[in-house]
């Protein structure tokens, strides 16, 4: 038994996952006008992860960043290779825990800011007093 996809008959025993197929199932007689333009589906990894070696996915627990659109249970894409800069959303190590905050670097010191008025900011004298675990680049927010 074969499965008809585009102009080819592919043995169902062959991994369909590894075969690039046309997006449009087509009646056997008429080739799809779209198939010459098909270059593969959108690959989220390619678009969301710039540097696979340095990138981890973490899950948010808590409400302190809701003002930045980051909610409890959302996943964050975190790149450890990025230089932490003023305004970045960072994962910092606080009391042995991975914690997410907005990093503000000001002339008067460094602030780890919560994006929710119900939670306090944390002030530190300098960036070198902090262990920044990584810089968040994307939030996978559950809508």
């Amino acid at each position: 038994m074969g499965v008809i996809i585009g102009p080819r008959v592919i043995d169902a025993g062959v991994s369909l996952l590894s075969v690039l197929v046309s997006p449009v199932p087509v009646a056997a007689g008429f080739p799809s006008p779209a198939q010459d333009y098909f270059d593969g589906r959108i690959d989220l990894n390619a678009h969301l992860i710039k540097d696979v070696t340095s990138t981890y996915v973490v899950r948010v627990s808590g409400e302190s960043m809701t003002g930045a659109g980051i909610s409890d249970g959302d996943e964050l894409i975190v790149n450890r290779a990025l230089e932490p800069h003023d305004g970045a959303v960072v994962v910092a190590v606080l009391d042995g825990e991975l914690t997410i905050k907005r990093l503000r670097i000001t002339p008067r010191g460094v602030i780890l800011r919560a994006e929710n008025p119900a939670y306090p900011d944390i002030n530190v004298p300098a960036l070198s007093d902090l262990t920044i675990w990584g810089v968040a680049t994307r939030c996978l927010h559950h809508v």
Binding site: V58, R59, E97, I100
Partner: peptide
């Protein structure tokens, strides 16, 4: 089993 980051 992703690592959890605390938002607190």
């Amino acid at each position: 089993e992703l690592p959890l980051v605390k938002a607190a």
